[in-house]
Design a protein around this nucleic acid. Structure first.
Lengths: 216, 216
DNA sequence: CTGGATCCGGGAAGATACTG
DNA sequence: CAGTATCTTCCCGGATCCAG
């Protein structure tokens, strides 16, 4: 991106991350962990491959990301966030928070990836029954999903891991999921709209926002 | 900006504020308060007038800003942030925080406005002597500056106001100011590098970061 | 398959001049 | 003061192709 040529903290930040796609690449690496080029492409529908390559070069120059070869027999390169790149989580969090109300508008024909949803989930979820033993709720599947882990009154949202065995697995149309986790839809109503729960319903209810939900 | 067409909170936020200049316009309105078109131009060196006009139209459509005619005999239109626009302060804060280290690089021939500096100042300042009566330190002047108000252990940074009479007025080259408020330069050393203090030095020392400053 | 490079068309951004 | 008009430049998006 062209520099703004302003001696201003924010303008200089935008000189580095204000380019189209750059912050969404950070989103992918924050929610997915280390990624291959092709992982990023899948998580960034709409980006041209040449543009992704160019952005990655720029971000490497700016020391936001680093590349290192995968150790195994695999001939692939892993892309990771540097510490400086990780520090962008605050920016990502605030953009996510500000944009959350925009999710109430219908998806039209927007693309959807379940792991994108892990960002707003971080502050939409709560642990409703802190005294119960730890519970894991999986949204989506191993291929594209995230795990909500409730324990001791705290909620942690991470990317799916085959190491973790979920108590409950949930699938639903994107907007139903949004309405459910923003408390606009009760669990019962959501199930009439395509929500499918595989496992304990109680585990899901545990992480849903507080009582007093109002059906739309 | 073209939409990313992603059903993702952050992507939808960037659909609205990811355009070039948009967040800097928000910066201006947050730090300067209601602005005229020409005020914005002065605070956004480098922007073309047609582009500013276009961004303002888009931001008005997105309900980030509103326009209303100035009441008095003046024939001017004031541009203000809506509540939704104000809510971007979290995004602005995090971008400012992340970009702050970039200010340690020299300004080259970047433009500088003192009121831009009020953003990082908000977390660089402290009240070193909470028991003293309230103090106001002015950086720059009424035309382009900001006031640092220390009171009861809290620090508030606002835009300059003729209603307020500062105890001390400070002027300095931009980078000296940065080094001073990041604790890289002692007050004494800064004064050898172009810092000029008009009024009580103690007032300025009160809001500077904690002791143990190391000269560069 | 992974990780790109190359080419091209359209549109956004930049520069400048001008106006009610 | 608050923009519009016009022209140029360059970034982005889409398609295609290619080397390891």
């Amino acid at each position: 991106m062209r520099s703004y040529n302003q001696y201003c903290s924010m303008a200089r930040a935008l000189d580095l991350v204000g380019d189209r796609w750059t912050l969404l690449i950070v989103r992918e690496l924050l929610t997915q962990g280390p990624c291959r080029f092709s992982d990023l492409r899948r998580g960034l529908p709409g980006i041209a491959s040449n543009l992704l390559a160019q952005r990655l070069r720029e971000m490497e120059s700016a020391a936001l990301i680093a590349r290192h070869d995968e150790p195994a027999p695999v001939a692939a390169t892993l892309i990771t966030l540097t510490d400086r790149g990780q520090d962008l989580s605050g920016v990502v969090r605030e953009l996510t928070r500000w944009g959350a109300p925009l999710m109430l508008d219908a998806p039209n024909n927007d693309e959807f990836r379940m792991h994108w949803f892990s960002l707003p989930l971080r502050y939409l979820c709560r642990d409703g029954t802190p005294d119960e033993p730890a519970t894991t709720v999986r949204l989506g599947d191993l291929h594209d999903g995230c795990d909500i882990i409730a324990e001791h009154g705290r909620v942690d949202v991470r990317r799916c891991s085959s190491d973790r065995q979920p108590d409950t697995t949930v699938a639903a149309p994107p907007q139903v999921l949004v309405q459910l986790f923003t408390g606009q839809l009760s669990l019962r109503t959501a199930m009439t709209k395509g929500l499918v729960v595989d496992g304990s319903t109680a585990a899901l209810e545990r992480v849903l926002p507080g009582k007093g939900q109002t059906d739309v």
